[in-house]
Nucleic acid binder design. Structure first.
Length: 915
RNA sequence: GCCCAGGUGGCGGAAUCGGUAGACGCGCUGGUCUCAAACACCAGUAGGUUCACCCCUGUGCCGGUUCGACCCCGGCCCUGGGUACCA
């Protein structure tokens, strides 16, 4: 029988579906293992070969774990709310629900062809009301919660209200936007509106007036991780800063816990580092400086510094142009100039600010502060190098030891006083945190690190401020002025946000007449007549923040996830996906999960135990070279003889860089009469590694590979391409090698003639040796995610076995190969007489006995150089070997240096010296 | 600027513990089969020198430790990623 992958693959895919081979249920007799892929956003372009890379790896790992007796949860779904479907809807008028549905069907078709072992009965779609009911539910819970810093967890907001009624803010230590102070009497006398407004300062989902990233082109606000270099990540449109009232999630309350939690996780160091930087913890001092206002009253200006040791060197202060005191600080003489500066900075977009970071600008406010340690009067400036969003929006400037303050001082000719020894202040500031203190009163002569400690204490002793931790992390902006997202289950009673009763969830997304914003710039939901709810919708990350929990219990109508299911499946053991979600999804879902953990709805604090980032697959573009002004195309090797123009050619009509000239003529009408200047009868194309994109004609569709070579070849080849975590170009040049391997494997069962060839003869020691070596190597490689080297091990195994048709060898080989090439293995497994699916076989154990060598190689001197060439039987003594060594000086040194007391003979590594 | 990861043949990449560098695959060269081609199979393939054996050089660069270094240490160069007037 010939290896007919088309017939085999479609037959088994159908059978697996009918038998529900991959359906999984709670089974307390077996240990659980949860393997998850980041679910895809179903875009109109369909899957390309980059998508399945991670899916194939997780599929292999899932099958591998199942063969080891684990009850493996391996689900898949769709992140189906989002901008592209809506942009498309605006352009074409097609309902996003419709295009999303079409795209999902297309994705499913493509996924099915690759033979994944997903339990599709657990599929979730974030745009399905049955699913987003629980997104809305979690939002309501956040709305009804605050964060208690003492207990270090989220608590019902009712507890806080009760506390306010009795004691006011006295004894409250809660995460909030601004510190508040009021008594119980005051609280009880406040109007309902005022009380509600105060509570928003504490709620974990709250509404606030904040600076947001506004994208006019998309007509919506965006979260920080959705903006890069002043442009929207989706679409690449300019983003500006704007003050707006928005829903936010208080993720900052969890900053420290998210930071600490990283320690326990098996994530790559680089990914943890990205999250650490994003959280951006810095320990410093809050210090109040006396400042004289324009009306001659004195106020205390709060700043944050990580260098309290340098306070003696503070010669001026700077506040952000958006600082709330700026008008009260500015003197009449300076008013005009300051107003002008404020206007200027407002106009400068975020992008300009980023691109002109070296430019120094600012203005004197006319106000003076007092340096609490030197007692000197120091001027207060306003400048946009101080950001309103970080710290307090005001700084103490130490030009001698901060490069930005230095540049500013130079520009405005301000005093520069060195307080740490070192550097050359004529050229630049000395920023390093090492050296001896000078000009610093009681700190003079001390080491910088020591001075920092003493200054913290001194600041607190004098009541000037205290030690404080600051985070770079911002609260997440949670509303989008868009249609295709989860509606907020919130209606308004005047200004007061009233949550919907959770019993009435979901609040379904209504139909709208148009998907565009309204005339006066309101979100599309404002078009709906009688819609009394919030008109913005939730952002893309809302639906993906808890989907991994829903898979555990996808059809439960009473809760997000039932207790029993959650207790059994707990959290994700292995999560595979792209690194691009480091500061978005992977932050939000940790926050979301921790919140649900605090409230007792889930039993694990961290959602993803181990995480692997698969690399990006880049495209390998091909070029043809047109002789300028003609319709002649010259092969790569001869192009230097002509003046040519490089043209991208569809990689699907190129094989091993050789152009299919017939297909090229048919590719586009203008090439119909193309002529070719060949070398050795072939047209050789040029190539380059670029991003995989439609416009470069380098997109390779997995369907194409599946048709040409079969799913098994695609699966194995994607793994053979290189290390999983590394970005690499898609290159079909090597695919024949893998396909050849599978055909060779097939021939072990069906022989050269195609007749069934498996027999019951006993295997030889040599055969068993190669089998057991392979079992060991492959098992270890899959555990370590070294899929590429395990494929190599399979190839060596088949090459070494030669014509071996023995069942004793082939059965275990079939099992260990089945995670990679499930269709072929299932086929021959059944041909060997097995009834059950190979998925339920047992992964064979290797036997140490067969791994030992019967001889070993020992270093021998040849012409004065050490060589590892002489082979000895296993039982050779050290003396035997030493007699053979030509004792040249190098060999002597080798023996002396190694000072062997005992030489242990290890088969693989030849020798191992024990001192 | 700071932080992280990496640099090995014509190409993708191996070398899991400091012990024969280049596994495995692609490509290329030669051969077998064939009227011929394709497929398949066999052999060779880091570079230099050589008929060949030998020998010499070789894991980004310079230096160090060691009997021995792709691997450890110090300094530099380059590539990729993250982040940024973050006080």
């Amino acid at each position: 029988m010939e290896y007919n992958f088309k017939e085999i693959e479609s037959r088994w895919q159908k059978k697996w579906k009918e038998d529900e081979t991959y359906r999984v249920n709670i089974d307390k007799k077996k240990p659980k293992f949860y393997v998850l892929d980041m679910f895809p956003y179903p875009s109109g372009a369909g899957l390309h070969v980059g998508h399945p890379l991670g899916y194939i790896a997780s599929d292999i790992y899932s099958r591998f774990k199942r063969l080891h007796g684990f009850n493996v949860l391996h689900p898949m779904g769709y992140d189906s709310f989002g901008l592209p479907a809506e942009q498309y809807a605006i352009q074409t008028g097609q309902h996003p629900a419709k295009t999303t549905e079409q795209n999902i069907n297309h994705y499913r078709e493509q996924l099915d062809k690759i033979g994944f072992c997903y339990d599709w009965s657990r599929e979730v779609r974030t745009c399905d009301p049955k699913y987003y009911k629980w997104t809305q539910w979690a939002f309501l819970k956040m709305f009804a919660s605050y964060y208690d810093n003492q207990k270090n967890c989220a608590r019902p907001i009712d507890e806080l209200v009760a506390h306010f009624k009795e004691k006011g803010t006295n004894g409250v230590d809660a995460a909030c936007t601004t510190q508040m102070n009021f008594t119980a009497e005051q609280w009880n006398s406040f109007s309902k509106e005022r009380q509600e407004k105060i509570l928003h300062n504490y709620r974990l989902a709250f509404k606030a007036d904040t600076m947001v990233n506004w994208c006019p082109k998309l007509g919506t606000v965006l979260a920080n991780d959705e903006v890069k270099d002043g442009l929207s990540v989706r679409g690449g449109f300019p983003v500006e800063q704007k003050r707006m009232k928005q829903w936010l999630l208080r993720v900052t309350a969890y900053a420290q816990r998210m930071l600490d939690g990283l320690e326990q996780l098996q994530w790559s160091e680089s990914l943890k580092e990205i999250q650490r930087n994003w959280i951006g913890r810095s320990v410093g001092a809050q210090v109040f400086f006396d400042v004289e206002m324009a009306d001659h009253s004195t106020r205390k200006l709060e700043i944050f510094t990580t260098r309290p040791d340098t306070i003696f060197g503070v010669t001026f202060m700077v506040i952000a142009p958006e600082h709330k005191w700026i008008h009260e600080l500015t003197t009449n003489e300076q008013r005009e100039e300051v107003e002008k500066y404020i206007e200027q900075t407002k106009k400068r977009s975020e992008r300009e600010r980023l691109s002109e970071t070296k430019r120094v600008s600012g203005v004197f406010t006319g106000a003076y502060a007092t340096n609490p340690f030197t007692g000197k009067k120091i001027p207060v400036y306003a400048s946009d190098y101080v950001l309103i969003g970080y710290g307090t929006g005001a700084i103490m400037a130490v030009p001698a030891h901060d490069s930005r303050d230095y540049a500013f001082a130079r520009h405005f000719s301000l005093e520069i006083v060195p307080v740490v020894e070192g550097g050359n202040l004529e050229e630049s500031s000395y920023d390093a945190k090492e050296g001896k203190m000078i000009n610093s009163g009681f700190l003079t002569g001390k080491d910088v690190q020591q001075a920092i400690k003493e200054m913290f204490a001194e600041v607190e002793r004098r009541g000037l401020g205290k030690q404080l931790v600051n985070y770079r992390l911002r609260d997440a902006i949670f509303s989008r002025q868009r249609y295709w997202g989860e509606p907020f289950p919130i209606r308004y009673d005047g200004e007061i946000a009233v949550p919907m009763d959770e019993k009435n969830l979901p609040l379904e997304l209504p139909e709208v007449s148009e998907f565009k914003p309204t005339q006066n710039g309101e979100p599309p939901l404002a078009r709906v007549e009688g819609w009394k709810y919030e008109t913005s919708t939730m952002p893309g990350f809302a639906g993906s923040s808890a989907y991994f929990l829903r898979y555990m219990d996808p059809s439960n109508e009473d809760c997000l996830v039932g207790k029993e299911a959650n207790q059994y499946w707990r959290n994700v053991d292995l999560y595979i996906g792209g690194i691009e979600h480091a500061t978005g999804h992977l932050m939000y879902s940790r926050f979301w999960n921790m919140f649900l953990y605090d409230l007792g709805y889930v039993c694990e604090n961290e959602p993803f135990r181990k995480l692997v980032n698969q690399g990006m697959i880049q495209g390998r573009s091909n070029f043809v070279y047109r002789v300028v002004g003609t319709n002649k195309f010259v092969s790569l090797g001869l192009k230097s003889q002509y003046e040519t123009q490089e043209i991208h050619v569809d990689v699907n009509i190129v094989k091993n860089d050789i152009l299919n000239t017939e297909a090229f003529r048919k590719w586009r009408p203008e090439f119909e009469n193309a002529e070719f200047i060949l070398e050795n009868g072939q047209y050789i194309c040029g190539w380059a590694i670029e991003k995989m994109s439609k416009s470069m004609y380098n997109v390779v569709n997995p369907d194409y590979i599946v048709n040409e070579y079969g799913a098994d070849t695609l699966r194995m080849y994607e793994m053979f391409l290189g290390p999983l975590e590394q970005s690499k170009p898609w290159d079909t040049n090597g695919i024949d090698g893998v396909h050849k391997f599978i055909r060779r494997f097939w021939r072990l069962f069906y022989g050269k003639t195609g007749e069934w060839a498996v027999n019951d003869e006993r295997a030889t020691d040599a055969e068993l040796k190669i089998l057991h070596k392979t079992i060991k190597k492959v098992g270890e490689d899959i555990e370590n995610f070294s899929f590429n080297t395990s494929v190599a091990a399979f190839m060596i195994c088949i090459n070494t076995l030669g014509e071996c048709h023995k069942r004793e060898i082939l059965e275990p080989l079939c099992i260990i190969l089945s995670p990679y090439i499930p269709h072929v293995c299932e086929e021959v497994w059944h041909a060997m007489g097995h009834e059950d699916s190979i998925c339920d076989a047992k992964f064979p154990l290797y036997n140490e006995k067969y791994l030992q060598e019967d001889s070993f190689e020992y270093p021998v001197m040849v012409n004065g150089k050490l060589r590892f060439k002489q082979t000895y039987p296993l039982n050779a003594s050290v003396k035997d070997i030493e007699q053979d060594i030509v004792l040249k000086p190098e060999a002597q040194r080798w023996l002396e240096g190694a000072a062997p007391k005992k030489i242990i003979i290890v088969p693989k590594k030849i020798i191992n010296i024990v001192k």
